[in-house]
């Protein structure tokens, strides 16, 4: 992660005429946008407008009803992205360090990777079982996934949920640093996170 811009500069993410329905109800129709390397896209919208569904569709979990999602220059889109959803993906009886080791294997950390716990404000907690962490600390641990293995596109659903002011600032710093390196961040947020978004999309009609 030392190179200035390890990811390509051309448009990284292109969404064309996307329609998503959940449980027979159409959330939104014909949404289009594109994001180039280094962009931070902020998703806004009321509760239930479809921000989460849009992120899940981008991640490939949810099959859209119509439209296309393209990741330029990526053969295997799922391997180019990180997704932080509402759930943290933590097992209660497993230590922070064991989670990180597991993610490193799962996402393919580069050789010589290091546990970046201090960069999310969890220094000294690597042996703690996650059930002993507070909600905010658990969220911080989930966010370390973003740093364990470099991936170009970050899809974040309320990344600062349960975080204090320092935590919000930390998330903002992470996003700013990733964009500076040429990454793309798409995040659903309720309040601004710090770095100015390059685009703000309002989801829902």
């Amino acid at each position: 992660m030392s190179a200035a811009r390890p990811f390509q500069d051309k448009p990284a993410l292109r969404v064309d005429g996307l329609s998503i329905a959940r449980g027979g109800r159409v959330l939104f129709e014909n949404m289009s946008f594109a994001a180039s390397a280094g962009e931070f896209v902020e998703l806004r919208g009321a509760n239930g407008a479809g921000k989460t569904s849009l992120l899940r569709a981008l991640a490939g979990f949810l099959k859209p009803r119509a439209g296309r999602i393209e990741f330029d220059g990526e053969d295997e889109p799922a391997l180019a992205l990180h997704f932080i959803g509402h759930t943290n993906g933590l097992k209660p009886n497993v230590s922070a360090r064991a989670h990180i080791t597991y993610w490193a294997g799962l996402f393919g950390a580069p050789p010589g990777w290091d546990i970046p716990l201090q960069s999310v404000g969890l220094a000294g907690m690597s042996e703690r079982l996650t059930r002993t962490l507070s909600q905010g600390q658990a969220r911080r641990l989930a966010l370390t996934r973003l740093l364990v293995a470099p991936r170009k596109i970050w899809l974040l659903d309320e990344p600062a949920a349960a975080l204090d002011d320092a935590g919000r600032a930390m998330v903002g710093d992470l996003i700013a640093a990733h964009c500076k390196q040429g990454g793309v961040v798409v995040a659903a947020v309720h309040e601004p996170l710090g770095p100015a978004p390059s685009q703000t999309l309002t989801v829902g009609s």
Partner: peptide, 8 residues
């Protein structure tokens, strides 16, 4: 949420 992570 572990399942989502394994999908990636």
């Amino acid at each position: 949420g572990s399942l989502e992570q394994t999908l990636l």
